[in-house]
Design a protein around this nucleic acid. Sequence first.
DNA 1: CCATTCGCTCAACAAGTGATGACTCAACGA
DNA 2: TCGTTGAGTCATCACTTGTTGAGCGAATGG
Lengths: 182, 182
Amino acid sequence: MTLSRAERRAETDGRILDAARRLFAERGYERTTIRSVASAARVDPALIMQRFTSKQHLFDRAVQPAGSPGPAADPVEEVLGTLGWKLGELPPESLAMLRSMLTHPEAAASARSALTAQIGRLEASLDGTDARLRATLITLVMLGVTIGHQLLHLEELRDTPPEEIAGLLRPSLQALTADPAP
Amino acid sequence: MTLSRAERRAETDGRILDAARRLFAERGYERTTIRSVASAARVDPALIMQRFTSKQHLFDRAVQPAGSPGPAADPVEEVLGTLGWKLGELPPESLAMLRSMLTHPEAAASARSALTAQIGRLEASLDGTDARLRATLITLVMLGVTIGHQLLHLEELRDTPPEEIAGLLRPSLQALTADPAP
DNA sequence: CCATTCGCTCAACAAGTGATGACTCAACGA
DNA sequence: TCGTTGAGTCATCACTTGTTGAGCGAATGG
């Protein structure tokens, strides 16, 4: 089974990106070194530069989301579905972005744009006054829970099934979905 | 007005800590260099080491909270008061800790312990099933909103008065305060 | 089959980091 | 007054970082 040139290239590129995603998600941008990624991918550090030009470019590629989410149904259940999904196994590219968003300016920009997109999607399915503000708060509620669970690993959430969290959160989110001034 | 030795020492120590808090809060632990703190405090870098032993010790001192919060009344209003306070002018030491908690292990430990304390305080004033879990979720809701506002600077929250945010959030938090299985 | 492409490695550089030890000089105290 | 203390500085070390350019060797394609 001799690998062709293109096959080898694609395979090592994938290995590099996988390692980068894992390390960026675990340690954040600053603490992740090109050398550590290279070592995790069993590759020479110089190759990463040759392929991705710079550490920042590697981060951009590693963080880029795979597929775009489909259109929404019920906003609360959509967001809670996101939660169930997030609480299970948030994809490494999202974790990498979230992990670095507070300390790395470029990651912050990515995070802001991702959150804004989510806010807009949510706003479109809300009625009443302050729709955008309420959409923002819903998004930030999810962000807080996700951070506490996936990034801070709070033991209070560690062993709690996602459905239970979703069940407790549902009335809270519905309160934000309802028009505050009907 | 010749300064005494003790006065000068206290004054420069204060200048160093102020600069450290500001820079740690703005850029996080990794991106803040001893040199930049020294330069902001108009002091030689070596002096900081002499006074605080290491960068980590400086961070510990800079992040240490000034005063402890008083006992609670109504949990929702207490937490929303925290919000009104946080949304106004969260103290630099808290900002510094929050900024670094996702990327710096020691900051993460501090954040976990601060959050756990807040959760415990909240749990004590909650009745019904899943009290601790609900206290955790309330805390994380506030964390998410604080991050979105103070650290990510989302424009949706930037120009919104704290009372309005509190007003929208109140029913949501009350839903978490109420016993889910009465 | 042979010249060429190209995936990949090796060795090294320049910049910046936290940290150290010798030194200067003004405040202190007997 | 004068030796001592201690706040503050200077030069420098040891190390890590991202990044670069020359080179090796195997797949490629004519």
